[in-house]
Write a protein that binds this DNA or RNA. Structure first.
Length: 591
RNA sequence: GGCCCCGUCGUCCAGCGGCCCAGGACGCCGGCCUUUCAAGCCGGUAACGCGGGUUCGAAUCCCGUCGGGGCUACCA
């Protein structure tokens, strides 16, 4: 077999040590012997005690991990995660799982282009990136497009764009190329087939001729008996007969022969020690009867071939991790370190999905969220930079990131907090940058491009919009009054303009404003305040009608600045127009 | 059903056996500021799921229980 070929040279010397248990370091409370072998609980937790006929036998072909197993520890014995421990020179070792030497870590984003980039996918990518960058490792972007029917170019493009938008980059991958040449799984089909065939030759996999009924019956029965509904290969044909049926032209998928009994365990980089009894793992299909690879095969082969050292992914893949480990080791390769991130959920606690609102990252971009805010929020959702800080730009996160500081709890995606954070980032923007970022949104509101003079007008009012906006898509409506005719907001008009004092206020304001010289926010303010005083009006009462008349809404940027930017002529025209509307007793909207 | 993961304010995070009648942030409530809306500032509300055990001492360790979630395909 040649499966190992693609990997061997990618694994630096010393990498065999990486599975060693991370030492219990320095914690006052650690009671080593006891903690490492929790009384009784461990096996029960993994379901290997009850009726444990064969008992738990570790089937493990990797000497390094066998050594690891000899002082396996429960997740509770994970090294302390406190701030003090996260700093300093020992962090690298703990994160990489190695206890000596240096290993170049390599991670991958492996989205499948069967949909838009999901916020959860973005977060996973972000954590991968943060981890790699904080460790001086490399990042790869792979296209897991084995599902030909559902994969599209458009989705693939959306994923690349979304990742870039978030501020991530990668050293090799589908769009940038790299030393491995081809990063699309759909173009590596031959390789997967070869691996599958080699596995068959080695007796680690077989052509499965079981019928749907057989499988169905098996699962139903297992379930009825309270056993794992994991197909155990009982209908597997001997290779002689299988060969015969194949030769007769029958198509059959290739299944991996899971060694049973046995146990597959691993030290998850975020969850700690996890084990599965092999009876829980079915003889899963690795190559479909049409010759295409399943996710398990393609993904595992690629992780091996591309030298991925750390597989950091969503917790939904945790139950299939033993399959990947078994496959990897059957290929003669060294397994990667796996780290499973808990899922993002909706307010109801179930996996984030469309019914919870937007799940596509691009929807947030279109709603006027800043990528900086999005990245920050996503990072904070499940990880804490410490120091009670939450506003931490991506670049600052890098040196502070640590995988074992990642939370094991699922996190509710809270758009409200995202919005708050977006406002914080919006306010931090340089005014010119704010205008530049807001411009497309204003153009979208107007449905046309902005003239240079209009951009200048917006720039003049922008600081006042910036300090109150939470999203970029609020800017258009806020500044629209500057760019064309006013549109009166019905609710505002009804609420403010009905008062009998309004016509007089409008008239006096016009008189006051006609002589203002020069025309500026401060002179306008002085003139209007004088007018207010003469009429004995409060600012609250006297200014609102002017606001509605000039901006069309009772919600607007500050009035004096708005008038200043609008200009005397337009301001007076709008006050006149509003007055006319009142006289006509025609207080409707369609201006 | 089986397996796995998870359980601190409504939400996110901190907490690593005494510094905790639990801290920060969002939200919410109240106040200040104020030309609207915001922003800002000040204050308040609110949590260790439950039961045992270990210990002088438990949010922290152990066991159990309950609850939530994920997976359980020739999808990924």
């Amino acid at each position: 077999m040649d499966q190992g070929q693609g990997v061997r040279h990618l694994l630096p010397a010393g990498s065999r040590h990486r599975h060693r248990a991370r030492p219990d370091r320095g914690s006052v409370g650690a009671v080593p012997g006891q903690r490492r072998h929790p009384p009784g609980g461990l096996y029960r937790r993994h379901g290997l005690r009850g009726g444990g006929v064969g008992g738990a036998r570790v089937v493990d072909h990797d000497p390094a991990s066998r050594r690891r197993d000899s002082h396996r520890h429960s997740r509770r014995s994970r090294p302390h995660r406190g701030r003090g421990h996260r700093r300093g020179g020992d962090r690298r070792d703990r994160d990489t799982g190695q206890s000596g030497g240096r290993m170049t870590i390599k991670v991958r984003f492996a989205p499948s282009p069967t949909g838009y980039l999901h916020v959860g996918g973005g977060r996973t990518a972000l954590y991968n990136w943060l981890f790699a960058r904080s460790q001086g490792g490399t990042v790869m972007l792979r296209g897991d497009d084995t599902d030909v029917a559902r994969s599209t170019e458009a989705y693939a493009a959306d994923i690349v764009n979304g990742l870039r938008w978030l501020g991530l980059d990668w050293d090799e991958g589908i769009d940038v190329g790299g030393p491995h040449g081809e990063y699309h799984q759909s173009r590596r089909l031959e390789r997967y087939r070869q691996v599958a065939m080699d596995l068959v030759d080695a007796g680690r996999a077989y052509h499965g001729f079981e019928t749907e009924e057989q499988l169905d019956t098996f699962r139903r029965q297992a379930q009825a008996e309270g056993l794992a509904p994991a197909y155990d290969g009982r209908h597997r044909l001997d290779s002689e007969e299988a060969r015969r049926r194949l030769a007769a032209g029958e198509a059959a998928p290739i299944r991996f022969a899971v060694p049973r009994p046995g146990e597959t365990r691993f030290d998850d980089a975020v969850k700690g020690d996890i084990g599965f009894g092999n009876t829980q793992i079915d003889d899963f299909v690795i190559l479909r009867s049409d010759g295409s690879p399943t996710y398990h095969l393609a993904s595992t082969v690629d992780d091996v071939d591309f030298g991925i050292t750390h597989v950091i992914r969503g917790e939904d893949l945790l139950p299939s991790t033993p399959k990947h480990i078994l496959l990897t080791e059957a290929m003669g390769a060294t397994r990667a370190i796996y780290g499973h991130l808990s899922l993002l959920t909706g307010p109801d606690g179930s996996k984030l999905s469309k019914r919870h609102g937007h799940t596509a990252l691009n929807a947030y971009r279109d709603d006027g969220y800043l990528p900086e805010a999005m990245a920050n929020y996503l990072a904070i959702l499940g990880w804490s930079p410490g120091e009670d800080e939450e506003i931490v730009p991506l670049a600052d996160m890098v040196p502070r990131f640590s995988l074992d500081a990642v939370s094991r709890n699922p996190a509710v995606f809270d758009p409200t907090k995202l919005e708050w954070m977006n406002g914080v980032y919006l306010r931090q923007l340089h005014p010119a940058a704010f205008v530049a970022r807001a411009r497309p949104f204003v153009e979208a509101t107007l449905d046309r491009e902005l003239q240079p003079a209009e951009v200048d007008q917006i720039a003049a009012i922008a600081p006042f919009v910036q300090e109150r906006a939470k999203r970029l898509d609020e800017v258009g409506p806020q500044v629209a009054f500057l760019l064309g005719d006013v549109t009166y907001d019905q609710v505002s008009w009804d609420k403010v303009m009905a008062d009998p004092s309004v016509p007089v206020i409008l008239a006096r304001a016009m008189t006051a404003l006609r002589t203002v010289e020069p025309w500026s926010a401060s002179t306008v303010e002085a003139a209007l305040r004088t007018m207010l005083e003469e009429r004995g009006l409060s600012a609250r009462k006297g200014l609102q009608p002017l606001r509605v008349a000039v901006t069309g809404s009772s919600i607007s940027p500050p009035l004096f600045e708005s008038m200043a930017v609008l200009g005397r002529e337009s301001t007076l025209r709008r006050l006149t127009e509003a007055g006319k509307r009142l006289l006509d007793r025609w207080p409707t909207t369609d201006a």
